[in-house]
Amino acid sequence: MRNILAVAGKELRAYFHSPIAYLVMAVYAVLCGFFFYSFTATYVVQTFRMQAMGGMGMPNMTINDYVIRPLFEGVLSIVLLLVIPLITMRLYAEEKRSGTIELLLTSPVTDFQIIVGKFLGALMLFGTMIVITFAFISTLFIYGNPSAKPLIAQAVGLFLFGASLLALGMWISTFTKNQIIAAVVSFAAFLLIYVLNWVTAYSSGTISHVLSYLSLTTHFDGFAKGVVDLKDLVYYVSVIVLGIFLTARSVEALKGRV
């Protein structure tokens, strides 16, 4: 555990010693803030309009359904597709480029401890982004009265979604010495698994079901609605475990132990 924390601490410090952490947080805060503002403004305009019309025959518009849910549904996950590669690109690529991988792999720590340490370090930086998201959302509590319950599911969902991408991005980072390559490949891979569920739009066989099930988006919708489904939970945990396992295999291969 001490080894894991030492590596996690090192990673976190590296993020904050370089511009990466600030850049990532700023990009996220700007995008998230703009989306949040747009949804809120739309909501406000719509509700005024409805009141002016007397609200006859109109459904009850809640903040949860018209601001928070669309924020999670689709929008934040897309921002993460862009931002997570920036976090994971350096995890192994930088160690390989600078030769510090030799230090890590010749230290009396297991590969697993290094991998989990790195993953935790990245996860902590990602955690700041969840905090930023909920800082925006918490302002709604000052001016309105949204329901707090779905927020828990949404937070868990965002966390698992991001953590899955982090694990896969870390794996991709083991293949190259070049951070830019790691970032580009990660982004492409994330985008692809993100849109995998599109196949259901034009196909309905077993394959399309499987592909749709594998898509990250399919399993995020439940969380965005405020529902924690065991199936979705299992899916994300599996992806995280898979990412860590693949990273371990890849690190083994680095040692010529194929």
Binding site: S98, E102, T106
Partner: peptide, 15 residues
């Protein structure tokens, strides 16, 4: 039981 100095010192330049 091993200390190792690779050809390029394995240092983290930002530390």
């Amino acid at each position: 039981r091993l200390g190792y100095l690779p050809e390029n010192p394995p240092v983290y330049t930002d530390m």
